[in-house]
Design a protein around this nucleic acid. Structure first.
Lengths: 345, 345
DNA sequence: GTGAAAGCGCTAACAG
DNA sequence: CTGTTAGCGCTTTCAC
């Protein structure tokens, strides 16, 4: 591998001149510039970012830690963050925590040791799992995304989860549903608690009784949605609509409904949080509350860049607004009669 | 940030002793070891991998370049590679080429400049886009995955694409289909050509005529599947089955079929390459040819580790076997009569 | 076993 | 404008 010294010798200039032309950190005469360029090409020289990073005390790496890439929300988030990073000259070091807080900490440590300038973290845990000082300590700036709560002690970008739940539940109420079941998340997760709160608040505001039996917690995974759905449908009278707290559980719910031979939306309406490419290819196309993932990625990156640029001040929390996408999985609740008729219309 | 020197001073030993205890590269007396450990903890020392990498001329980073993370095949691939990397003490630097060969080269260059030990590349282009020497040159070892052809000049892990197509088409033929249309890929891509070849060969072997009008190329994206499907269905007589060359186009096909009011599998059968979590939640659950993604990731990583370990020899190519997963989207072709009857059975 | 010291490739302060 | 040079933090050869 050719080094800068080799280039300097080949071009008949000093290493300083080479460094200056390549990084543009200082003006160099056009003639020398050309000679340097030519030598670079002739030798196939490529700058060693590691050496550069060591010298400068930082790198152009940023870390990204998510709990599960195969969750379409995170898949898109990774994609968007990647785009942002590229636009700002950063490369991304990807870590997958598998919902494991210890592993998450380990990944962050690793990224710090790689001298990553910053990291964007989708925290897997709840408030109890973090000490405020930990994330904020060290030179590496971290910004939280998605599961964003104050106890993290760093800038956080999240969804307005209460509003998201309210959007879904209101839509269902507007269609005439009164028995709306919820496939929720585990209470220790901030996101899950907020979505449940949004559900309860909306029912209360609209004067509909809250029925504990119509809530089933899950762990945001496919199997949980499947099991929760089956359990909820054993209620008598059966709920006429299902509000599902995330995309993975929605898949489980749809499978369960398929197994049970229930038609959507004729027999039961379904509305969920999280949009994904398949939602509109389903029969019926799924009505969902969409998270503004690109905006979240943008906001997170902006926050990170701000901190990298030396911005001080206490951790800021930013909640972005969800958006209801009405497709075909929600309809008016079936009356006994119409349910019969619809079997073969 | 504490440095090794600080630790050495705090522990009252030399930096050599610190380095040796931390990396285990040389024996150190238990007593000194303990003192070092304690100093490390007291100072909150974390090793600077950049400095270490500079000195050693390599890093524990490996690059991973894919064309599109949101394609479920690559999503799972990223997940699996990540797991492999972690198990072997590597971190992954993720790059997304967006199907752009120039960008891909740029990403590889970047990774090389970060002194990545190796890279796993899902090539976006065809044979014409690469010169054999390019990928193999440089200290960074690269291994190709998925779109793997000899012209790359590096070890390559791929699917046996002809067999994959044969599996799908045979299944359809066995059910009695004779007019099987194919939503294929662009001919310049190796994968697409192989899948088409598998389709043709299978028809020929089974004595079914190849009808050019029943082939529609796409670019492996959702929109392409949608458009291709609509176009193919304008054939008269209509094809009784659709063989779709990848998952993203399958989504498009399912949307198009939904728009057209065609029922699967009563009106038309559908079989595709690539499995994904939603395939079994669809109504009907989708019959697909599954790629052994975990095995592919494992094989790619093993090949890379081998090269990193100094293995010489010409580039090796390894084709893994696909697997047919029969679900509910394929059935016997409808006769005119039964098609009528099925409308309300 | 342990310590001192050279140097990985680059940048930037300093001197011309 | 250009060249010389001192390190960034770590590993490792060489001497003890």
């Amino acid at each position: 591998m050719a080094t800068m010294k080799d280039v300097a010798r080949a071009a008949g200039v000093s290493v300083y001149t080479v460094s200056a032309t390549l990084s543009g950190s200082a003006p160099v005469s056009p003639e020398l510039k050309a000679r340097v360029r030519q030598a670079v090409k002739a030798l196939g020289y490529e700058r060693n970012s590691v050496a550069s990073g060591l010298r400068q005390g930082t790198s152009s790496l940023i870390g990204l830690v998510v709990s599960d890439v195969t969750n379409p929300f995170f898949t898109e988030l990774v994609d968007r963050i990647q785009i942002e990073a590229r636009q700002h000259g950063y490369s991304v070091l990807l870590g997958i925590s598998g919902h494991d807080v210890a592993r998450e900490a380990e990944l962050l440590r690793l990224m710090r040791s790689q001298q990553a300038a910053g990291a964007i973290l989708g925290p897997a845990g709840g408030a109890a799992d973090y000490r405020a000082a930990d994330l904020a300590a060290g030179r590496m700036k971290v910004v939280a995304i998605d599961n964003a709560f104050p106890a993290l002690g760093v800038d956080a970008i999240g969804l307005d989860n209460r509003k998201a739940a309210a959007l879904a539940v209101s839509h269902l109420l507007d269609l005439g549903h009164r028995r709306i079941a919820m496939v929720g998340g585990v209470p220790r997760q901030h996101v899950a608690r907020e979505r449940l709160a949004g559900y309860r608040d909306t029912l209360r505001r609209r004067g509909v009784a809250f029925v504990p039996a119509l809530i089933e917690p899950g762990n945001f995974r496919l199997e949980d949605g499947y099991a929760a759905c089956k359990k909820l449908l054993r209620n008598d009278p059966r709920p006429s609509a299902l509000f599902v707290a995330n995309n993975l559980m929605l898949i489980g719910v749809m499978r369960a409904l398929g197994d049970l031979g229930l038609r959507v939306p004729q027999d039961i309406s379904v509305c969920s949080i999280d949009d994904f490419p398949w939602a509109s290819a389903f029969q019926p196309a799924l009505t969902v509350v969409q998270q503004p993932i690109a905006d979240m990625a943008g906001a997170a990156f902006r926050a990170l860049l701000g901190r990298l640029g030396g911005e001080a001040g206490p951790p800021a929390r930013q909640l972005l607004s969800p958006h209801l996408v009405v497709r075909q999985s929600c309809a008016a609740p079936p009356s006994r009669l119409s349910a019969r008729r619809q079997v073969c219309s």
